[in-house]
């Protein structure tokens, strides 16, 4: 087992991504929109490819804008299919993201000879190469790993977003109608949240990939939800899990020589199942206290 600066960078970046995804994931979970997060993270693909094609670089602002627009487009499309076309929510999510994702795959194949966009990388990411992908300014200054910078900026954006809009995010998650009734712009808050999810997906896809980022959005918040009774502890535990997942994921992957991102998600899954065993509603007295305490009506 080694602990060098490369290991630290990978764990540090992994933790930043896991915490960012976890914070957004908490609000998706509370809005029962975890699958919308899944949809967005796949639907941004055509936006990434188009941005890539326009700018010729995966580091460009065009990629981020393209992904952001597609992310918002996908939430609008899901909403329209559900409300106007009367399709069930789960079906409209399934239709929207598979369609947009497929368009993305086709675009990658069409443009692949023009730009160096690696399909494998977009889908699965590779955090292990992070230390050698450096951000070097035009006049030759080495600023360190590019992906760590990206994850860091994203982390502070999300931290600011949850801090400054904490009141709005929590009330619209609990009671959307009441929020609208008292004049809180619930639709705007929702769109802002969806944009953040899109942006996070883009800034994480090179390191953990468009598929595994979904796990980081859904699994740590669901695990923390089993253990906590109010929102701030829920966010704290989600963040702590993010750090643990990054550390254990790195060393386990190192140990059995496997994908770091894959191992991070596997660790997250193990934490979830462990928690579900302890806190879930199992027979045989396997459990502690149950979360779904049905209200005893008076």
């Amino acid at each position: 087992m080694t602990f060098d600066s490369n290991a630290f960078l990978i764990i540090f970046t992994g933790a930043l991504i896991a915490i960012s995804c976890g914070f957004l994931g908490v609000f998706l979970l509370l809005r029962k929109m975890s699958m919308t997060g899944d949809a967005i993270s796949h639907a941004v693909l055509p936006g990434i490819v188009i941005g890539f094609f326009v700018s010729g670089s995966q580091r460009s602002l065009e990629v981020i804008l393209g992904a952001g627009l597609l992310g918002i487009l996908s939430t609008l499309m899901i909403d329209a299919l559900r409300k106007k076309a009367k399709v069930q929510l789960d079906a409209s999510i399934g239709i929207t993201f598979t369609l947009l994702f497929a368009i993305g795959i086709i675009l990658i194949n069409l443009f692949a000879y023009k730009v160096d966009l690696d399909q494998e990388c977009v889908l699965y990411g590779e955090i292990a190469y992070l230390p050698i992908d450096l951000w070097i300014t035009p006049n030759g200054l080495n600023l360190g790993p590019r992906i760590t910078w990206l994850a860091g900026i994203n982390f502070f954006l999300i931290l600011g977003f949850t801090y400054f809009l904490f009141k709005e995010l929590s009330i619209t998650s609990f009671d959307e109608q009441f929020s609208s009734a008292i004049g809180i712009p619930s639709k705007g808050i929702n769109l802002a949240l969806m944009s953040m999810v899109s942006y996070t997906t883009v800034s994480s896809f090179e390191s953990v990939g468009a598929i595994l980022v979904v796990a980081l959005l859904v699994v740590p918040p669901s695990t923390a939800y089993l253990w906590t009774k109010s929102l701030i502890p829920l966010l704290r535990l989600t963040a702590a899990l993010g750090i643990l997942i990054a550390i254990l994921g790195y060393y386990l992957a190192y140990w059995i020589d496997s994908s770091i991102a894959g191992m991070m998600v596997a660790v997250a899954g193990a934490f979830f199942f462990g928690s579900a065993l302890i806190k879930g509603n199992w027979p045989l007295g396997l459990r502690g206290t149950s979360k779904s305490n049905p209200a005893f009506d008076s």
């Binding site: 029962k32 009141k167 998650s173 929020s179 109010s230 929102l231 779904s292």
Partner: peptide, 25 residues
């Protein structure tokens, strides 16, 4: 109309009544 399994205390929910007058941020 709401999910009462939401992670919030009684006080958390009642304070929400004051949010309208507080304004954004």
């Amino acid at each position: 109309s709401v999910d009462w399994n939401f992670p919030a205390s009684v006080l958390d929910v009642v304070v929400m009544g004051t949010y309208g007058k507080l304004g954004l941020f």
